[in-house]
Simulated assay, not measured.
Amino acid sequence: MTDYRVQPGEAKEDQVTAAIEKVTSQIPSSIYLGAAITSIIASIALNQSGKKHEALYVGQWVAPFLLLGIYNKLVKQLGSDATAHQ
Protein backbone atom coordinates (compact mmCIF):
# COMPACT_ATOMS: atom_id res chain seq x y z
CA MET A 1 0.00 0.00 0.00
CA THR A 2 1.34 3.45 -0.93
CA ASP A 3 1.88 6.02 1.82
CA TYR A 4 0.66 9.45 0.65
CA ARG A 5 1.34 11.34 3.86
CA VAL A 6 3.50 14.46 3.70
CA GLN A 7 6.64 14.03 5.77
CA PRO A 8 8.24 16.89 7.76
CA GLY A 9 10.43 18.95 5.46
CA GLU A 10 8.89 17.49 2.30
CA ALA A 11 6.69 20.53 1.53
CA LYS A 12 7.65 24.14 2.24
CA GLU A 13 5.60 27.29 2.68
CA ASP A 14 6.09 30.16 0.27
CA GLN A 15 7.66 33.49 1.23
CA VAL A 16 4.31 35.29 1.41
CA THR A 17 3.06 32.87 4.06
CA ALA A 18 6.36 33.10 5.94
CA ALA A 19 6.21 36.92 5.88
CA ILE A 20 2.63 36.97 7.18
CA GLU A 21 3.50 34.49 9.93
CA LYS A 22 6.55 36.54 10.91
CA VAL A 23 4.34 39.58 11.52
CA THR A 24 1.30 37.87 13.04
CA SER A 25 3.39 35.73 15.39
CA GLN A 26 4.17 38.95 17.27
CA ILE A 27 0.51 39.17 18.35
CA PRO A 28 -0.01 37.68 21.83
CA SER A 29 -2.31 34.66 21.94
CA SER A 30 -4.39 36.38 24.62
CA ILE A 31 -5.55 38.90 21.99
CA TYR A 32 -7.30 36.14 20.03
CA LEU A 33 -8.85 34.68 23.17
CA GLY A 34 -9.96 38.15 24.27
CA ALA A 35 -11.53 38.79 20.87
CA ALA A 36 -13.44 35.50 21.09
CA ILE A 37 -14.71 36.26 24.60
CA THR A 38 -15.66 39.80 23.54
CA SER A 39 -17.60 38.35 20.61
CA ILE A 40 -19.48 36.03 22.95
CA ILE A 41 -20.39 38.89 25.30
CA ALA A 42 -21.38 41.17 22.42
CA SER A 43 -23.51 38.43 20.90
CA ILE A 44 -25.33 37.87 24.20
CA ALA A 45 -25.87 41.62 24.62
CA LEU A 46 -27.23 41.96 21.08
CA ASN A 47 -29.51 38.97 21.60
CA GLN A 48 -30.85 40.40 24.86
CA SER A 49 -31.55 43.72 23.16
CA GLY A 50 -33.65 41.99 20.51
CA LYS A 51 -31.16 42.24 17.64
CA LYS A 52 -31.22 38.54 16.77
CA HIS A 53 -29.58 38.75 13.34
CA GLU A 54 -26.75 40.94 14.59
CA ALA A 55 -26.26 38.59 17.56
CA LEU A 56 -25.89 35.60 15.23
CA TYR A 57 -23.49 37.53 13.00
CA VAL A 58 -21.22 38.58 15.87
CA GLY A 59 -21.53 35.15 17.51
CA GLN A 60 -20.08 33.55 14.40
CA TRP A 61 -16.83 35.45 14.93
CA VAL A 62 -15.92 33.31 17.96
CA ALA A 63 -14.72 30.22 16.05
CA PRO A 64 -12.52 32.14 13.56
CA PHE A 65 -10.85 34.07 16.40
CA LEU A 66 -10.14 30.83 18.26
CA LEU A 67 -8.84 29.15 15.09
CA LEU A 68 -6.56 32.09 14.37
CA GLY A 69 -5.29 31.84 17.95
CA ILE A 70 -4.51 28.14 17.51
CA TYR A 71 -2.76 28.81 14.20
CA ASN A 72 -0.79 31.63 15.82
CA LYS A 73 0.27 29.35 18.67
CA LEU A 74 1.35 26.59 16.27
CA VAL A 75 3.45 29.03 14.24
CA LYS A 76 5.11 30.27 17.43
CA GLN A 77 5.91 26.75 18.60
CA LEU A 78 6.72 25.03 15.30
CA GLY A 79 7.56 27.80 12.83
CA SER A 80 6.42 27.88 9.22
CA ASP A 81 8.04 24.60 8.25
CA ALA A 82 8.93 21.52 10.26
CA THR A 83 12.47 21.27 8.83
CA ALA A 84 14.15 23.24 11.64
CA HIS A 85 12.83 20.86 14.33
CA GLN A 86 14.26 17.57 13.11
Rank of each mutant, 00 (worst) to 15 (best):
E10T: 03
Q15M: 07
F65H: 12
D81F: 02
L67G: 15
G34R: 06
Y4R: 11
R5P: 03
G79P: 02
Y57R: 08
D14Y: 05
S80W: 03
L67N: 15
S39Y: 02
G50F: 05
V75S: 04
V75R: 07
H85M: 15
A63K: 11
K22P: 00
E54L: 14
L78A: 08
D3F: 05
A11L: 10
V6W: 05
D3N: 11
K76C: 03
K76S: 03
V16T: 13
D14M: 06
I41W: 03
Q48Y: 06
Q86E: 11
S25W: 01
Q86N: 11
W61L: 12
I20W: 09
Q7N: 09
L78V: 04
Q7R: 12
K73H: 13
V23P: 00
N47R: 11
T38D: 02
K12T: 08
K51M: 07
T2P: 15
P64W: 03
D14K: 08
A35I: 07
V23G: 00
V75C: 05
L66A: 09
Q60N: 12
P64N: 05
K22V: 00
Q48W: 04
G69N: 08
Y57M: 10
I27G: 03
K51S: 11
N47Q: 14
G59C: 02
G79D: 05
G59Y: 00
G9L: 07
Q86V: 10
V75E: 03
S80T: 10
Q77E: 11
Y4S: 14
A36H: 01
A35D: 02
I40T: 08
Y57C: 06
A42Y: 05
K12Q: 11
V16D: 10
I41T: 12
A63Y: 11
Q15S: 10
G34H: 06
K22A: 15
I27L: 14
S30R: 06
Q26C: 14
L46E: 13
Q7M: 06
L74M: 11
V16M: 10
A19Q: 08
F65G: 01
R5V: 15
I20K: 07
W61K: 02
Q15L: 07
A35E: 01
G34K: 06
Y71G: 12
P64C: 04
L78W: 11
L68H: 05
A82P: 00
I20Y: 09
K51Y: 09
G79K: 06
A82D: 04
A36M: 02
Q7I: 04
E21K: 10
L67S: 15
L46G: 00
K22C: 01
A55Y: 03
P64Y: 04
Y57K: 07
A63T: 14
T17I: 14
V75G: 00
A42E: 01
A18M: 07
R5K: 14
A55F: 01
N47H: 14
A45M: 12
I44M: 04
G34T: 08
L33H: 09
E54P: 01
A84T: 14
L56A: 11
S80N: 13
V23S: 02
S29N: 13
V58N: 01
H85P: 01
I27Y: 04
L66V: 14
A11G: 00
Y4V: 15
K12F: 10
Q26N: 10
Q77R: 09
